[in-house]
Write a protein that binds this DNA or RNA. Structure first.
Lengths: 234, 234
DNA sequence: GGGCTTGAACTTGTTGGACAGGTTGTATTA
DNA sequence: TAATACAACCTGTCCAACAAGTTCAAGCCC
């Protein structure tokens, strides 16, 4: 099977991904505290049997995640101790991690819907309507609708006119995508009655935002997310 | 002045930071849509007058932020259109961006405090108590207390036993740190009466979590954040 | 002509080496 | 002893090269 071998390669991932995990592991196992210095890039490269370039890539991502910080001439230092991040134990319990992320999603997206209803400009409302139309078509044709769903939710986050909401929304979804990339296929076939439900739920949200009904939008979004979680774990 | 020249260099930032911004600018100005291909690494390096290594660094961070996606052999593609992110217009209105992030912080941290009160283990409570003690000392000695404040809030996020909360919390603070790194000093001197207020506010939160009073913890956290915002923008 | 194979051109992933510029700790000197 | 100078080390950046994967079109076979 070609596909399985491909998946096996992807499972290993890029070398930089391995380096990322191994550095996190070093911080944990060596019990490095905040402010402690990591081994140098060259030393890590030697230890891992990789080039310095690859180790550097991993360190750049670690820095972007706020876990380490590089000081030129001095070295890389631990800035935050890596906690149990989703990206790590995704192999263990993908589903529970996805469900756990709903707790954050609840509060963030509910508030986003409320603010969107209050502040949406005509242009942003137009973007939401178009995303809603795309999602409707995708659902009615019974095809995959995950991307369209994501686009609608993101359009709502944009309508808050607060970049912090969009940024947080992207971050949440990036975590989920990392899980899906690890092999879990969330966009599995839906039971037929779920299509009608998802249509209704999203319509309620869009309607409320159109009418600038803040409480209604928040309620509809919360309702939609609750049902969505139940669809994942009946 | 040595310091000013150093700051000037830092202001320019690393080349990779410039590359990051310029690529974002390309996506926006060229109006690249989701799925469109970016110029190749070599081409970008030529355009920017930098090495391919540096451009690669920027693309890695863009991929980590979920904006682009690299496909080996094919190129890098736009995955999400970069919205008005904090990291971009930080030069324009740092303060308003910080204030805007409070809207997200409100809902996330309030819910985190509620869940922490419900779920905190004895070990996690111990961590919170120790962080609280550190913050108390820092505040009473009238020194900088920003790191200690951050540590306490993060300990509360950890006590939710939900990695998604910690991850989201880190993400929010990473944005703020990027702003601060750009030159804005938030940890300016406090008015003396603010110290007592901050002591009381945090004590209320920690007490509620200790007593496993979910509503109390949520209320105390919300109150603390509201006052914090007012301290920033009286 | 239509469908398939082949291959060239291009792209990202990875390696190794090199140098510039900054930091740190030590040893030497005044 | 205290200040200085130096050597070792580290990150940031550049370059050249190859491996591995994708794309697309020319060309071949049926």
């Amino acid at each position: 099977m070609i596909s399985s071998s491909i998946r096996a390669v992807q499972r290993e991932g890029r070398l930089a991904d391995q380096a990322y995990s191994r550095i996190v592991q070093i911080i944990k196992s060596e019990n490095l505290d905040v402010g402690d210095r990591l081994p140098s890039e060259s030393q890590l490269a030697l230890t891992f049997g990789m080039s310095r370039t690859v180790v550097r890539e991993a360190l750049i991502r670690l820095a972007a995640d706020g876990i380490t910080e590089a000081r030129r001439g001095a070295g890389s230092f631990v800035k935050r101790r890596p906690s149990e991040r989703l990206s790590e134990h995704m192999a263990l319990d993908d589903l529970s991690a996805t469900l756990g992320s709903y707790e954050v999603r609840f509060v963030v997206e509910t508030e986003a819907a409320r603010l969107a209803a209050m502040r949406r400009s005509p242009e942003q409302m137009h973007v939401i309507e178009r995303a809603w139309e795309d999602l409707r078509k995708a659902l009615l044709s019974n095809g995959p609708a995950h991307l369209e769903d994501l686009a609608l939710h993101r359009a709502i986050a944009e309508a808050t006119a607060n970049p912090a909401f969009v940024s947080t929304f992207d971050h949440m979804n990036a975590e989920v995508e990392r899980i899906m990339r690890a092999g879990v296929d969330i966009s599995r076939s839906r039971p037929p009655d779920a299509i009608g439900a998802m249509l209704t739920e999203h319509e309620m949200i869009v309607d409320a935002i159109r009418l600038q009904d803040a409480d209604g939008a928040a309620l509809a979004m919360r309702w939609h997310l609750m049902l969505g979680r139940r669809r994942l774990m009946p």
